[in-house]
Amino acid sequence: MDFVMLTGVGLLTGVTTVLFGFGGGFVAVPVVVGADAALGGDAMRVATATSALVMVVNAAFATAVTPRRVLLALRGSGRLLVLLAAGASVGALATRLAPADVASWAFIAYVGLTITDLLLRPGFLRPYAPVEAASDDAPRPLSAFLGAPIGAVAAFLGVGGSVMTVPAMRRAGHTMRVATALANPLTLAIALPATAVSLGVAAVPAATDARVHLVGLIDVRAAGALLLGALPVIAVLRRRPPRIPDRVHAWAYVGLLGVVTVAMLFLA
């Protein structure tokens, strides 16, 4: 039943990867925490590691099928990508050393603060300028100095960074469609080193008794189920993307963050 449930959730992660640039992290973390609750305090560590692997595959696939003219917006962002990866390595190591409850409550607090910021501060729901004025072909890039902190926080929480990069690109004048598409290659830069760190960590001792199959800290069964559901959805939605009004798209982004926060509060 867990495998069927996780595959169903994988369908949702495919939708969030394409529509919101999440790569699966925000949806996968609370679900894997619930599925691996038998691991006790280590469930959050396993969830963030498993989420990182899911994001690597989802974000890589979504990036591969994104139109080249959109990806060209990241031209010249090599320093940003390197700093994202460096920050992610530090964040992934930190989450292995921090008490389990710290990561869980930090996840809830960060998402809650992000929702508050998006609702109250202009630039996301209420753009500074009409979003139609933003150019899909020549968007303003993110500042490279944001790379290290975004990578560290994203890897520590297992969320991929889109909750920071999408609002930042939105406030730079991008439409939601472009901001969420560009979030996937940025997520890949974060998730790759985070996954590598997770694979190199010793498995959780309680995993044998709980019948959870781990490679390092990654629950391979959960990751496989999530990807089984996600990848076909990504392929379909990238080929035939739904037409969503920009303002509705932005509100849906905030709403999904709210749903994930409530889910984590129940599991904390």
Rank of each mutant, 00 (worst) to 15 (best):
V159I: 15
R171T: 07
A183M: 14
P193Q: 06
S162Y: 10
A194C: 10
G161D: 07
V197T: 12
A191Q: 05
A179W: 06
N184Y: 08
V166H: 07
A155N: 02
V153E: 02
T195Y: 09
P167G: 13
N184E: 02
F156I: 01
A168W: 00
P149Q: 03
A155P: 04
L157R: 11
M169Y: 02
V153M: 09
M164K: 03
V178G: 06
G151D: 01
G151E: 01
A154F: 00
F156T: 01
L192Q: 05
G173M: 08
H174F: 00
V153G: 02
L188W: 12
V178N: 05
M176Y: 07
A181R: 11
G158I: 12
R170S: 15
V153W: 06
T180V: 12
R171G: 01
R170H: 10
A183P: 04
A181W: 02
L157G: 10
P193K: 01
G151S: 13
T165W: 11
A152L: 15
T187F: 03
G151N: 10
T195P: 08
L192G: 03
S162A: 15
P193G: 06
R171M: 10
V153S: 12
V153F: 00
A196G: 14
M176E: 09
S198R: 03
T165E: 04
N184V: 13
V153P: 04
G158Q: 08
H174T: 10
R171W: 00
A183E: 09
T187P: 03
L199M: 13
P185Q: 06
M176Q: 15
A181Q: 05
V197H: 09
L192P: 06
R171F: 01
A196C: 14
T195C: 10
A168S: 14
V163E: 13
A196V: 15
